[in-house]
Amino acid sequence: MSSELINLTLRVWRQSGPDSPGQFDNYQLNGVSTHMSFLEMLDVLNEQLIESGQESVAFDHDCREGICGTCSLMINGQAHGPDTATTTCQLHMRRFNDGDTVTIEPWRATAFPIVKDLVVDRSAFDRIISSGGYVSVNTGNAPDGNAIPVAGSQQEVAMDAAACIGCGACVAACKNASAMLFVSAKVSQLAILPQGQQERSERVVSMVSQMDDEGFGSCTNTSECEAACPAEISVSNIARLNREYLRASLCGRD
């Protein structure tokens, strides 16, 4: 596959710090190979900016193979860009045409304050997990791995939920900046597996409460999160969270 070179106009959100006002800056970037990944294109932009004495655009990224969940970016109004089931780091420039204007914004949510440019603070997710997204089992306490069988099919559903990479695209894409898909994925995984049963009620109640405290919006069941999710987490997990929550509220201990 031979590569093509395209020219792009980038409209990039620049913001020097959490409290500074931000603005869009336009950059012309020529000779972009269509084989590049989107982040490599930003690397090239940054090299050019530094060479011309301007500070590079800050953006989060790490593994660049779609699993760590560090990369973000709202690209032309879509979380992780136009492809489905794809993170920004796996998006390639062949998805764009010569002469395109590409608008790049950070995730926008009150619970994800902007750190700089396109970098946001997603520690709210960590706090939600620490409020209950685990099984309380100390090291050394475990019975044999085969002591409790888990049906293959059940395990598959748990794994579907466990595949969440915690990138925050669900929040970014949701018109309400709701974190329900993220929270429900963890609640589901542990509600399905026998290992998670002991803390099932407490878990869902405290995770939802933490989610609200962080300032995420409420779920309107638009399923935009599911469409934006690079790990293809299903909204059926949200239904399961709702069930779990009802169950915990009506039947759980107080």
């Binding site: 869009f24 109004g77 879509q78 949510a109 009150t110 018109k175 900046a177 709701s178 300032g215 469409a227």
Partner: peptide
């Protein structure tokens, strides 16, 4: 009430927003 909660959850709207659905 829920709408107010959701409004607070995103104080600044996106400049561009497209659905993926």
């Amino acid at each position: 009430s829920t709408t107010a909660m959701s409004r607070r959850a995103r104080s600044r709207q996106y400049d561009e927003k497209e659905s993926k659905q």
